[in-house]
Amino acid sequence: MAATLSLTPPSSLPLRRRSTRPLLRRTSTTIRSLSSPSPSPPATTLSQDDLKKIAAVKAVEYVRSGMVLGLGTGSTAAFVVAELGALLSSGKLEKIVGVPTSKRTFEQAQSLGIPLSTLDDHPYIDLAIDGADEVDPFLNLVKGRGGALLREKMVEAASDKFVVVADETKLVTGLGGSGLAMPVEVVQFCWKYNLIRLQDLFKEEGCDAKLRLDEGGKPYVTDNSNYIVDLYFKSPIKDAAAAGKEISAFEGVVEHGLFLDMATSVIIAGKNGVDVKDK
């Protein structure tokens, strides 16, 4: 973050927290789905980026002038930030404040003239909008393949509402079911020790744990100077709530990419239109 942002919370600002909820409520959670079909069949097949943009534009409809917004990280979130910048520039939105979840998002939002702050100065966030790597039928998520899982989880946990934008390829029957990475942020000290423990923890799921590398072949370093161990599952995680607790209990683990019972709405764009699922 830029050095000009204050890191001292004003004494006059009370810390408001949304009510604590259990990690999973499979027996009591009600998911409502509203479909919005496309006005007319597209002339050509929509790309994944086209679908992400459609979902992002729909998500920004939740934003109102004067809101404090959590700004997510990743390719889908970038479309959200771009749309917010355009609405501010046109005067359709006013007096919003963004709390970015990564240096990348900070730089994009700053370039678009979006006023920015931090959780220290705005510990209560009206609405967070972010993408997801996986979405299960209960609106639980895998996030963090963009490397910002710690800041994303902090900002989104502080938000009154958390709207997720995704394309239909992100839907899974169980978390870990895509076969792609489920990230775990770990301290650099003895990272291999934790990589082995994480892989052993999920033997039944056929887990393969790998240290994330950057484009130069060196360990990828997060905005918080940590490493990421990516977990690849041959079968979905059997109990995501229990898995999250066990991962968090490992010394040296900073955060994991299981975002459980956090999303209040998920907007999914597909070839037949937009599907909005609400809790």
Rank of each mutant, 00 (worst) to 15 (best):
L5K: 04
S6L: 15
T8Y: 14
P9M: 04
S12M: 09
P14W: 13
R16T: 15
R18T: 15
S19G: 07
T20P: 05
T29H: 12
I31Y: 04
I31F: 07
R32Y: 12
S33F: 06
S36C: 13
S38P: 00
S40D: 02
T45W: 08
L46D: 06
K53P: 04
A55N: 06
K58R: 10
V63C: 09
G70F: 01
T73M: 00
F79A: 09
E83P: 08
G98H: 09
S102N: 05
R104A: 12
F106A: 12
L112W: 01
D120W: 06
D121M: 11
H122L: 07
P123D: 13
L127M: 14
A128D: 01
I129K: 09
D133A: 07
K143C: 04
R145V: 00
G146P: 00
E152R: 01
E152D: 05
E156C: 03
A157F: 04
D160C: 10
D160V: 04
V165T: 04
A166D: 05
T169M: 04
K170F: 02
G176K: 02
G177M: 15
L180Q: 05
V184Y: 01
W191D: 09
W191K: 11
R197Q: 14
R197G: 03
G206V: 05
D208A: 14
A209L: 03
L211P: 06
G216E: 14
G217S: 03
K218P: 05
Y227P: 03
Y227C: 11
Y232V: 06
P236A: 13
A242H: 10
G244Q: 01
K245D: 13
K245Q: 14
S248Y: 08
V254G: 08
G257K: 00
D261W: 08
V266N: 04
A269K: 12
K277D: 03
D278W: 03
